[in-house]
Amino acid sequence: MSYDLMVFDPNVAPRERGAFVAWYHKQAEWAEDRDYSDPAGTAPGLARFYHAMRQHFPAMNGPDATQDDDEIDRAADYCIGSSVIYATFPWSLAEEVYPVFRELAVECQVGFYDVSGDEGDGEIYFPGDTLRPPSGGAWRQVAADFRAFREEGQ
């Protein structure tokens, strides 16, 4: 189980929620003929986002995979398509990841989808939209539970 977020190219994603969710599920089939661990060929804004995000949460696989044992606990699994980047993180990092991911999406002018959002309608943000208040859903308690369990084990 992981904490999942996605950024997307706002020029290709549909804006209407139902169409967006259908498009998201199509993207998550990972049917492109590409190496999904390599940022080559992704949309320019997504590439900027990926390189900025790796400064905070390094890649665990692909050509940019961290070789630093001190970074492995902060590593993310980035699945990079031509129009989306789907990222999975340990639940123990969710509280830390969420604001950084969201902020960089806005800064890089890409869309943001809160895949793990539990309000029944995970946030979908397009550049230029007004950001909703940060999610305060039950996922935050799940993240806190994982973090406490991890700290107890150390």
Rank of each mutant, 00 (worst) to 15 (best):
P127S: 07
Y98K: 04
Y98P: 00
G45K: 01
V106M: 01
A105M: 03
D118F: 00
Y78L: 14
P39K: 09
G117D: 07
E103G: 11
H51G: 00
V84L: 11
R132D: 12
G62S: 04
R132H: 00
E123T: 12
R132A: 04
A94W: 08
Q55A: 14
K26A: 06
V106Y: 06
Q67I: 15
P63H: 03
T88R: 14
S135W: 09
S92Q: 10
P63S: 04
S37D: 15
T130L: 07
F126T: 07
I85A: 03
G45D: 04
N61D: 15
Y125K: 04
S92T: 14
G41A: 08
E71T: 15
L104T: 11
A43W: 06
Q27D: 02
A65K: 10
F112T: 10
C108G: 05
D129K: 12
E32M: 05
S37H: 13
S116A: 12
S92L: 09
P58L: 14
E29N: 00
Y24C: 10
C108A: 13
R102C: 03
G62V: 07
G117F: 08
V97K: 13
P133Y: 09
A31G: 00
D121C: 03
D38G: 01
E123G: 02
A22S: 08
M53E: 10
T42I: 08
Y50F: 01
Q55Y: 06
G62N: 06
S37V: 12
G128I: 07
P133Q: 13
G128R: 12
L93N: 11
P58K: 06
G120C: 14
A22D: 11
R34G: 01
A65L: 00
D73K: 15
A28L: 11
R54P: 03
A65N: 07
A94R: 05
A87H: 02
T88V: 04
E95Y: 00
D69H: 02
V84A: 03
G122L: 07
F89E: 09
S135Q: 12
A28I: 00
E32I: 08
A31S: 01
V84Q: 09
Y125Q: 05
E123D: 14
F101P: 03
C108K: 15
F112E: 06
S82F: 06
T88Y: 02
Y113T: 15
P99I: 06
G128N: 13
D35A: 04
E32A: 05
F89D: 02
D68I: 15
A40R: 02
Q67R: 15
A65W: 00
V100S: 05
F126E: 09
